[in-house]
């Protein structure tokens, strides 16, 4: 009987792990923009980076239920790590990426023990505090970080010794997109693994999870560290592709923006961060070109409408609409506890 259930769970996870047509299309279109939207590569680069950053927040918020208002701490640490390495002569981008991931992961590991304590409200305060402390350190240590003037003099070497960063942002975008895609695949694999399943059970009911023998704290420490490394990589990508780091990478509005991006796209859904990043950045770009002074008013209004109309998840609304149009109501048999929406 018990093996039977295990088999069910396993086969169900395998089913979830399969790539849907929509997903393949999504990445094909993303790759196609490399050729078809040459004049938009700079903003696409930014979208890919914010998408990755939101994905990293989703790993802890959407899948493990850890609320955070200080995710920029890891983003900023990654950005400064990569930036300072490049300034001091270690110009290889992949080296910087690795160093940023490690530095952010260490910070994530250490701070995770603080975050594990207390309620959601405490977590919000602790994460916020960590980001503020880091921001002030970066401000004070101007010999290292350049302080409020920003980190000057970053020169990046070519990627793998082959591809130079160009002024059109094409190399930068291809680089960011590739890194985001690879890390997305890893995240996707993790989410559909038994480990990912245990995270979700922790999110839904930590007490019960503990009762069935899931090592709750260890799991949370692991995912928090992983998410920190992801955010560090996103920060490093920003530093390397813009070749500039300012204190702003650690600012509160970074943490708030990424939360906003994730909420627009959908929490607990790997594409949520990516879709949110596209919607948010494109809206910002279009509206601020139209009215540089008052774009924040319009974007605020649109965001309220999106969230009201989309409720939990923007894409889910579109999906139900599409199903209504197509008239398909086919149900797939599921053994796992059903949540109303897709998780991958």
């Amino acid at each position: 009987m018990s093996t039977n259930i295990a088999d069910h769970v396993r086969s169900s996870l395998v089913r979830r792990g399969r790539w849907g047509i929509g997903e393949i299309l999504f990445w094909l279109i993303a790759a196609a923009t490399l050729y078809f939207l040459p004049e938009r590569h700079l903003i696409l680069n930014e979208i890919a980076i914010i998408g990755l950053f939101a994905l990293s927040l989703d790993l802890i918020l959407g899948y493990a239920g850890i609320v955070s208002l200080g995710h920029a701490a890891f983003f900023g640490l990654g950005a400064y790590t990569a930036g300072i390495l490049a300034r001091d002569g270690l110009a290889d981008p992949l080296l910087g990426l690795g160093a940023a991931a490690i530095a952010a992961a260490i910070l994530g590991f250490v701070t995770s023990f603080l975050v594990l304590r207390g309620s959601d409200l405490t977590k919000l305060m602790v994460t916020l505090g960590v980001a503020l402390v880091l921001g002030e350190i970066a401000n004070q240590a101007s010999w290292l970080t350049g302080g409020a003037d920003g980190l000057q003099g970053i020169t990046m070497g070519p990627i793998l010794g082959l591809f130079e960063f160009d002024i059109f942002g094409t190399t930068a975008y291809a680089y960011s997109l590739t890194v985001t895609f690879l890390l997305f695949i890893v995240a996707r694999r993790i989410v559909v693994s038994p480990y990912g399943l245990s995270l979700r059970s922790i999110r839904d009911n930590p007490l019960k999870a503990r009762a069935v023998g899931i090592p709750v704290n260890r799991r949370l420490v692991a995912v928090y560290t992983l998410a920190a490394a992801y955010a560090g990589v996103a920060g490093a990508l920003l530093a390397q592709t813009t070749q500039f780091v300012s204190l702003d990478v650690l600012a509160f509005h970074r943490s708030a923006d990424v939360m906003l991006v994730l909420v627009i796209g959908g929490v607990g859904y790997l594409y949520g961060g990516l879709i949110g990043a596209i919607v948010f950045k494109v809206l910002q770009d279009v509206i601020s070109a139209w009215t540089p002074q008052y774009w924040q008013f319009w974007i605020g209004l649109i965001l309220v409408i999106i969230v009201l109309a989309g409720r939990e998840r923007l894409t889910e609304r579109v999906r139900t609409l599409w199903k209504g149009v197509a008239g398909r109501t086919a149900k797939s048999p599921e053994t796992l506890p059903k949540t109303s929406t897709r998780e991958v």
């Binding site: 920003g150 002024i167 059109f168 942002g169 813009t242 500039f244 300012s246 601020s288 002074q293 774009w295």
Partner: peptide, 18 residues
């Protein structure tokens, strides 16, 4: 509008040039 954020200034400048 660069919102007073340096990396945005840089991207905008790059977009304007390119």
């Amino acid at each position: 509008d660069d919102t007073g954020v340096a990396d945005v200034t840089k991207r905008l400048a790059q977009e304007l040039i390119v």
